[in-house]
Amino acid sequence: MRKEDCFYVGTIVNKFSFKGELLVKLDTDEPELFLEMESVFIEIGKDLVPFFVERSQLHKSMLLRVKFEDIDDEPAADSMMKRELYLPLTALPALDGDKFYFHEIIGFTIIDENYGEVGTITGVNDTTSQALFEIDNNGDEVLIPINDEFINKVDRENKVIEVNTPDGLIDLYLS
């Protein structure tokens, strides 16, 4: 499995018991979605290695307490610390309406209600407090906050996102 074909689930942050149980800090608003995982890919070196889940349960809101097959003691659990977990993109539930996953909108065209065609989404910057569309406008980068109030419509069929940004926002990047 290639990392490009997967999405990040979380990171192993601590041991829970001497029997190999681990705590995973999940990267989600809905941790209960990950309770039924049968297996997961764990990044070891540059490879994604499959591990089977014996059992899991939520632990203190955003932590998932997991027992993997073949991780049965503290030394084995120690070897898993700080490793990242991934699942295939096909495991994501389909979204409809104006909701979207960041990976699925790469290549979409942004059209602003007042400005017109802004450009093509090349990425999403989610390292800031406000996630941003990264848009290529003929070689110039335009950043638009991903904000429900700005998004009018997500047209998956035509790969277009229609927005209504505040006056002057796009011109900041293109003047």
Rank of each mutant, 00 (worst) to 15 (best):
M1D: 02
R2D: 15
K3P: 02
Y8D: 01
T11V: 08
N14F: 07
F16C: 02
S17E: 07
G20Y: 13
K25V: 00
L26E: 04
T28N: 08
L33H: 07
F34N: 03
E36F: 06
E38H: 07
S39A: 08
V49S: 10
F51A: 12
F51V: 03
S56K: 05
Q57T: 11
Q57A: 15
M62F: 11
R65N: 06
F68P: 02
F68W: 05
D70C: 02
E74Y: 05
P75G: 01
A76T: 12
M80T: 06
M81L: 14
K82L: 14
K82E: 12
L85E: 07
T90S: 14
D96Q: 08
G97H: 10
G97S: 12
F100L: 09
F102G: 00
E104R: 11
E104C: 07
I106H: 04
F108A: 07
F108R: 09
T109H: 09
I110R: 09
N114S: 11
N114L: 11
N114K: 15
E117Y: 01
E117K: 14
T122P: 01
T122G: 11
G123S: 15
G123F: 10
V124W: 08
D126I: 13
D126H: 15
T127Q: 13
T127P: 00
S129T: 12
Q130L: 13
F133L: 09
F133N: 10
N137T: 13
D140C: 01
D140K: 14
I144Q: 01
D148F: 04
D148A: 11
E149Q: 09
F150H: 15
N152V: 11
N152G: 06
K153E: 15
V154Y: 03
R156H: 12
R156L: 10
K159S: 13
V160H: 03
I161E: 00
I161S: 02
N164I: 01
P166F: 06
P166H: 09
L169H: 05
D171Q: 04
Y173K: 04
Y173V: 04
